[in-house]
């Protein structure tokens, strides 16, 4: 096994373990930190997929903005040392059975599937920029509008109400 493969396996293990921690720990703060670990793993996998731009975006937006916002909300909403209420065993069992069934079905489907042949070209960052300004310009503008509306909505929701 060469170095690239071992690093790939390491990244995959980090991603899955991070995801496991993000749902399994009872302390909310540990969940958020495990999510950061998982997102780092996904960013590494993006590099293996020749998506360097997305890997950087994943680190900047997901880890730098989204995870930090979640950690802020955790610190604002309850004392950090207080952990989640215990889950009832029947609810966890139901959730686990649902997730396992979905996994089994999807994996059966995926391992038997045959996909269309790709072009084999490596994606280039220049192609992404061109696509965003030519073929995908309408979705791009729509997403920017959605972001603007979301920011204004969040500000309106979290601003203190004036008494009338």
């Amino acid at each position: 096994m060469n170095l690239a493969d071992s690093v790939f396996i390491g990244l995959a293990v980090v991603t899955v373990l991070g995801a496991l921690g993000a749902v399994a720990f009872r302390a909310l703060f540990y969940n958020a930190l495990s999510l950061v670990l998982c997102l780092f793993g996904v960013a590494g996998l993006f590099i293996y997929l020749h998506a360097e731009f997305l890997a950087v975006m994943e680190v900047i937006i997901y880890i730098g903005a989204i995870s930090v916002a979640i950690i802020f909300a955790i610190m604002l909403s309850r004392p950090m040392d207080k952990s989640d209420e215990p889950r009832s065993p029947s609810a966890s069992l139901r959730g686990a059975v649902c997730a396992a069934l979905v996994f089994a079905g999807l994996w059966r489907l995926l391992s038997g599937a045959r996909w269309a042949q790709g072009s084999g070209q490596l994606p280039d960052m220049r192609d992404i920029g061109k696509a965003l300004l030519t073929t995908d310009v309408l979705p791009f503008e729509a997403v920017s509008l959605v972001l603007l509306v979301a920011i204004i909505g969040a500000l309106v929701l979290s601003s203190p109400r004036e008494r009338s």
Binding site: T15, A19, C38, A99, A100, F103, W107
Partner: peptide
């Protein structure tokens, strides 16, 4: 698929 199922759980 593992990420999806863990998230679903």
């Amino acid at each position: 698929t593992l990420l999806l199922c863990l998230g679903l759980y």
